[in-house]
Design a binder for these strands. Structure first.
Lengths: 264, 264
DNA sequence: CAACTGGCTTCCGCTCAGTGGAAGTGAGCC
DNA sequence: GGCTCACTTCCACTGAGCGGAAGCCAGTTG
C-alpha cells in the first residue's frame, strides 16, 4: 500500500536543504544512494528531488552518474555578504603580499568563526581553515580576538559551553581562557600555538565597526616562526585600520546580513 | 473559498528557487512584498516559504524587516567548483601583483562567461564583471578567447544567436566575429576595446586542460592603456601555463562540475 | 548464460503539506 | 478617528508530494 510509513511534519523545503547539506559532510561527488542515506530520505523521494534540483542547476551530474553541487548554487550565493568581502578583499591581499603568509578574514557566526576570505601563496600549505568553513572560537586566533572584544554576555555564554579539544595544546579550561581573553583585550591581539593543528600557529587583530567588534584578520604560520610572529603586528594593525576605514560608511547589518544568526 | 485559483504544476522546490532568484535581480535587501512580486507568488505563500528559509538560514532578516540572502547559502555553496578556484587563486593573485591591473578567471557557462575569481586593488575600479556574474561571450576578452578555442559546434551555435549590443563598439556582426575568432585562435589571445562598457578595455589568454579549452584569464584596463596592453602578454601566458600545470592532475569534470550546464 | 547483485528509474493510488483568499494586526500619516 | 500600507495569521480544500514496490540495466559470479 502506498503512503504507508511517511514521516509527517517534514516540509519539502527541509528535505531539499538536507540534500544540499549532505554535500557538506563529505568531500567530492555523491551517488543517489549516498544522498538518500545522508539526508535520511527514502530513495525514491531523494531521486525525485535530486532530479528537480539538477534541472534547476543546484546540483550537477557527472558523466559517471554521481552528483555534485552545481554552479548555479554558487552563483546565487555570490550576492551574500558581498559588502564586507568585496570591501576587504584588496586589503587582505595586501596583508598577504606584505607578510608572505596565509591571510584570513573571519567573522563570528553563532558559536564559531566563519572564514570569509583567505589569501595564500602557491606553495602548498596545510590548511585547517577554508573559505566558508567554520572553526571553534577558542582554538583560533581570529576566534579568540573576536570573543575577547565581544559583548560580555556573548563571551560568558561561550565560556559556559563545553570547549572542545582539537590538539593537546587547545586551551579548554574556562577559567584560564577567560584570563587569556582579558589579556587579549588589553594587548589588542591574540595568538595560538598548535591549538587547532600541530605544526602551525597564528596571530590575529580585531576589526571594529561603529565601535563594536565586526571581524578579525589574521595570519597562519608554521610553528617554527611562533617566537617572532609578533613582528607582523604593525602590518596587521595597519591593514585592520584600512578595512575599518573602507567599511565605515556601510551600515553594520548590511555588511554581512545578520551574522550572529546560525547557531553552531 | 480557499484554494480557488492555485496554479497547479508548480513544485514547492521551484517556488523556493524563484524566491532565491528574486535576489539576483536587485541589489540589496527586499521586503516580503518585493519578494512575492518578483517570484510571482501570492503574498501568503511567499510569507510561509520565506519564513522557513529564514529559519534555515538561507535568508536573513534585517532589523528593519527586510530580507537578504543568508550566510548559510554562501557556506553551502563554497564547496562548489572549489577545485579550479582554489588551485588557480594564487596564480590569479600573482597576475594581479605582476601587472597591477584587475585580473579575472572565467569559464564558459552555457552561452555566457561566468567569472570564477577576480583580484583587484583597493583603488576604485568601474566594474562590469563580478565574481559569480555572467557576461555575453562576444563582448569580453575572456569570452572571445574561450569561444575561439571551443569546439566548432559550440562556436557555430553561438554565432547563430542574436548577438546583443552593449556599447557602440560591441562586435555584433556574425561574419566579422567569426573572422575575429579565427584570428584570435591564430594569435593566441583576445582583446576588447570598450565593448562592454565605455572607458575600459581587456586582454585575455586561454587556459587549456587535457587539450581542450577549460578557462581563460584576463586583465581589464582603462581605455587609455589599450595601445600598450599587449605588453602584459608574456605574464598572462606564463600564469596560464602555471594554472595548466597546477590543474593538470585534476579530472576535467571535477574541476567545475559540468560547467557547460545552465543555458543562457 | 542464467542467476544474482546493486544502484538507479518509473509507477501509481493515497493523503497530508501546502495553499492562498480573507480577515486580523499594527505602525505611520493626515 | 479613519485611512493606507505592509505584514501576519487563519483555515478548509486539494493536488503535489509521497514512498513501497516493481522494473530496468550493467556488471559480476558460479
Amino acid at each position: 500500500m502506498a503512503g504507508g510509513s511517511r514521516e509527517p511534519g517534514r516540509t519539502v523545503t527541509s528535505k531539499v536543504l538536507s540534500i544540499l547539506e549532505a554535500f557538506e559532510k563529505s568531500r567530492g561527488a555523491l551517488s543517489l544512494t549516498d544522498i538518500a542515506e545522508k539526508s535520511k530520505l527514502p530513495l525514491s523521494t531523494a531521486h525525485r528531488l535530486v532530479n528537480e534540483l539538477t534541472d534547476w542547476g543546484l546540483l550537477s551530474r557527472e558523466p559517471n552518474g554521481r552528483y555534485q553541487l552545481g554552479i548555479r548554487l554558487w552563483e546565487l550565493a555570490q550576492n551574500t555578504g558581498r559588502q564586507l568581502r568585496d570591501a576587504a578583499r584588496p586589503y587582505v591581499q595586501d596583508l598577504f603580499s606584505l607578510t608572505g603568509e596565509t591571510a584570513h578574514l573571519a567573522v563570528r557566526a553563532g558559536h564559531e568563526v566563519l572564514y570569509i576570505d583567505r589569501v595564500y601563496g602557491s606553495k602548498r600549505v596545510p590548511r585547517a581553515s577554508r573559505v566558508g568553513g567554520r572553526l571553534p572560537m577558542h582554538a583560533t586566533a581570529v576566534g579568540k580576538v573576536i570573543l575577547a572584544f565581544e559583548e560580555d554576555w556573548v563571551r560568558d555564554a561561550y565560556l559556559n559551553r563545553q570547549l572542545e579539544r582539537h590538539t593537546a595544546h587547545t586551551h579548554v579550561d574556562p577559567q584560564k581562557l577567560a584570563a587569556e581573553l582579558a589579556q587579549i583585550r588589553e594587548q589588542g591581539y591574540a595568538t595560538t600555538l598548535e591549538e587547532v593543528r600541530l605544526g602551525s600557529c597564528s596571530i590575529a587583530v580585531p576589526v571594529f565597526h561603529t565601535g563594536r567588534i565586526g571581524a578579525a584578520i589574521g595570519l597562519v604560520l608554521p610553528t617554527n616562526q611562533a617566537a617572532t610572529m609578533t613582528r607582523h603586528l604593525p602590518v596587521l594593525r595597519g591593514i585592520a585600520a584600512q578595512i575599518e576605514r573602507a567599511t565605515a560608511r556601510i551600515p553594520l547589518e548590511t555588511l554581512l546580513g545578520s551574522n550572529v544568526a546560525g547557531t553552531d
